[in-house]
Simulated scan of single mutants.
Amino acid sequence: MGQELPADVLQHALTSAGVRPGDEVIVPSYGTSEVVQAVRRAGGLPVYVDIDPDTFCIDPAAVDVAVTSRTAAVVPVHQFGHRAEMTRITELAERRGLLLVPHAVQQSSSAETVKRQANAAFLTQRLSDVITPRVAPGTEHTFLQYVVRVPGNGRPDRDAFARTLRSKGVRCQVPVQTPVHRMPPFRRDVWLPETERAADECLSLPVEAGMTRRELQRVASACNALGGLLQPA
């Protein structure tokens, strides 16, 4: 996993790669607006595509469908510490003649990363009433965020779950409140069902490297205690 590029650096990377004003650039909507800002500053037209529901990263199949004669590039964003499916995206870019502009600078694993991964594994083994993160085979996940799905009826149940956890002293946050394609400055009339579902269901739980096993168990116990309150739709 690597360090995400700031918008101005990504803008330079896009223009250096060959993106010109009016070119379409395929990006995910699930995440921050920095990528879209960089595309716009480079003169490109952002084209939003859906995510893979397991990894929350850009879906290579959706990228393939979105390519037009005006498409110049794709930005595969690594999400929450999970790498995008770079083998398929690289093959697709080569086959369709697209520029591939990474959104991160590669870095080696650190002791902090290893500890986060261990903490994530601990939670995954103990959580019983949320859908825990899935890691694609052969792909690294550094767990910059530990993102679960809360079963139930979408955003109302997820938000109620989060409020209850916070009342018990468990730090948690909604990782993506509003997909970029629904933000007023970047709005587009597109239907991205997996993106919308993730925005309604996902919650980030703490797995920082400095957490103790006792603290992690407290998180798991608080979540599991709510399982009977929220039934799947």
Rank of each mutant, 00 (worst) to 15 (best):
A160V: 07
Y146S: 03
R126N: 08
Q217S: 15
C57T: 15
C223V: 15
V39W: 01
G44E: 03
A38G: 01
P6S: 06
S109R: 08
I26H: 00
D54P: 01
A136R: 12
Y48I: 05
L127V: 12
L10P: 05
F186C: 02
Q37I: 13
T71L: 08
Q107G: 11
A160T: 11
Y30G: 05
A104V: 15
A72P: 00
A162P: 03
T195K: 00
H12L: 15
R96K: 13
T55K: 01
M86V: 13
A72F: 01
A13H: 14
G169L: 09
M183I: 10
P60R: 03
C57P: 03
A209Q: 08
Y146G: 02
D200S: 12
I51N: 00
L5C: 04
G152P: 07
P179S: 04
P21A: 03
G31Q: 05
S69Q: 12
G18R: 00
A162Q: 06
G169R: 04
R182L: 11
D23P: 03
R214T: 15
S29R: 00
D23A: 09
P53S: 06
T15S: 09
L230Q: 02
V105D: 15
V114F: 15
F80V: 07
N153F: 12
V36F: 01
V147I: 12
C202M: 14
A17H: 03
D189T: 13
G81C: 12
T212W: 01
A162T: 06
